[in-house]
Amino acid sequence: MKSMDNAYSVEVNDLTKKFGRFVAVDHISFYVQDGEIFGFLGANGAGKTTTIRMLCGLIRPTSGQGRVEGLDIFTQTEAIKQDIGYMSQKFSLYDDLTVEENLVFYGGIYGMPSSELSLACEAVIQRMDLVSQVKKLTRSLPAGWKQRLALSCAILHQPKILFLDEPTGGVDPISRRAFWDAIHQLAEGGTTIFVTTHYMDEAEYCNRLSIMHEGRIIALGSPMELKDRYQQPTVEQVFIDLVKPAKA
């Protein structure tokens, strides 16, 4: 059992979530180091979103322990919320607000004072290359731009850790590549990234990966380690290899 060390951004022990009789997350344990890109890989329904929601304080775990930025996920959920950024699979934006209004609103509910808020908006707009879109209604943006805006809203308050739940669903390959470039930049800046995906090529971008299947973590390690361990050329092959016998 690992010690509760502050060098870990996330630390989870025997975490379990049951919905009635259904066990969505089944005694998982892992840690995420400060500043790393940690990938959560798994098929739909493997328990990735449930895990992320437990870490963000959106769902109360059934049992186990967990800490995010040193704060308890059972008792300190409100404190955790100040430290995290979260981007859900749906890109939770207001369609009838402009790009700028969405940014100001999401910054605003984090309690940023207006001077700081306008500076932060300006910085994010530059960084994410949103200048040309600022006055447009979010409704009119293509999916790739919406995704970029959702990411911008999630990082405006400079969270220590960013949770991304299948952030690239329904987005074209070029936008996906640009998105991952932005993620790498954030990680270099010291933000911890916790990302779930079922795109295998994205898995290769992560520092470390955990492969989840039916609520359990069935493999954990860097993409290189996993490929070596299971003697496969790609993460995709590792994944298929692991999940197939598990299903049989």
Binding site: C56, G57, L58, E78, A79, K81, Q82, I84, Y86, S88, K90, F91, S92, L93, Y94, D95, Y106, I109, Y110, G111, C153
Partner: peptide
């Protein structure tokens, strides 16, 4: 329904 509530709930409001 549109999912923005989830985003509000992860904010420290």
């Amino acid at each position: 329904e549109i999912g923005t509530l989830e985003q509000l709930l992860v904010a420290p409001i």
